[in-house]
């Protein structure tokens, strides 16, 4: 698997990252050499080995479903780059009808 600039572009789109031409070139060379180094994992047989997603086995942590105060709405809304009467403003999500 070679990491070409085309692969980088596809992954960048999935990652919601706009890249410049230079970035595409640089990342493709760097990711290629990093992944080649990582390919050494193939030398280690892992058939039948359970994957670990968490080092400390903790499952199903429960708590009482009690109502507690949440963060003040005004403070949270004030963090948005653009807001209007307590709402967060973003560009139009749906295409306008023709």
């Amino acid at each position: 698997m070679r990491i070409t600039p085309e692969v980088v572009e596809r992954v960048a789109r999935l990652s919601r990252l706009e890249l410049t031409e230079q970035e595409r070139e640089a990342f493709s060379a760097q990711l290629d050499s990093i992944l080649q180094y990582f390919a050494r994992l193939d030398r280690l047989p892992t058939e039948g080995v359970e994957p670990t997603s968490h080092a400390i086995p903790v499952t199903n942590v429960f708590r009482e479903d009690t109502v507690t105060p949440s963060l003040p709405r005004e403070e949270v809304a004030a963090m948005a780059p653009e807001s209007y009467e307590g709402y967060v403003v973003v560009p139009r999500v749906l295409e306008a009808e023709a």
């Binding site: 990652s15 760097q30 990711l31 990093i34």
Partner: peptide
């Protein structure tokens, strides 16, 4: 693109890949 530096972009792409 404007907010993240090169190492963060590299790792996001490595992880996404």
């Amino acid at each position: 693109a404007e907010g993240f530096g090169p190492e963060v972009k590299r790792r996001i792409m490595l992880g996404t890949f």
